[in-house]
Amino acid sequence: MRTVIFRSIAPFLTSLMVLFSIFVLLRGHNEPGGGFIGGLIAASALAIYGIACGVAAVRRAIYFHPMALSAFGLFMATVAGVLSVFASVPFMSGLWTYPVIFGVELALSSVLVFDVGVYLVVVGAIGSIALGLEEGDRD
């Protein structure tokens, strides 16, 4: 698979896919999308980069171990649920805030934090499996 064409295209394709995955993640609350599907797109981006340029390059590029990313995502998702303790509402309630930044109203919520957590869990877990498979028997 390591043709010149693929190797030259792969970095652009990967960065586009990661960008698209973040777009999908952010539009997810009211429209099709969200953390899970965004995470899958990002994980396939990593897999493509791994096929083209080798697993070591991917590991350097994401810096953290995929399992650590995944764990951080789980941590974020849980913390997003715990936030509702401060509002005296049950666990996992959606809390919204609407700050106005540069004249634009921004809808921020604990749901978004949860969804980013899901995104990271999926990127980490699927990415870890994909890289493991591409690596073969070596660890």
Binding site: L74, F75, T78, P90
Partner: peptide, 30 residues
């Protein structure tokens, strides 16, 4: 649900939440 949740009722999900939090921290520190 409109009534505020009593602090003691947080004991209900707390065991699971606590395990998930500590578990994810431990994976990061594996």
């Amino acid at each position: 649900l409109m009534e505020p949740v009593a602090a003691a009722d947080w004991l209900i999900p707390a065991p699971v939440v606590w395990c998930l939090l500590v578990g994810s921290v431990l994976v990061m520190l594996r």
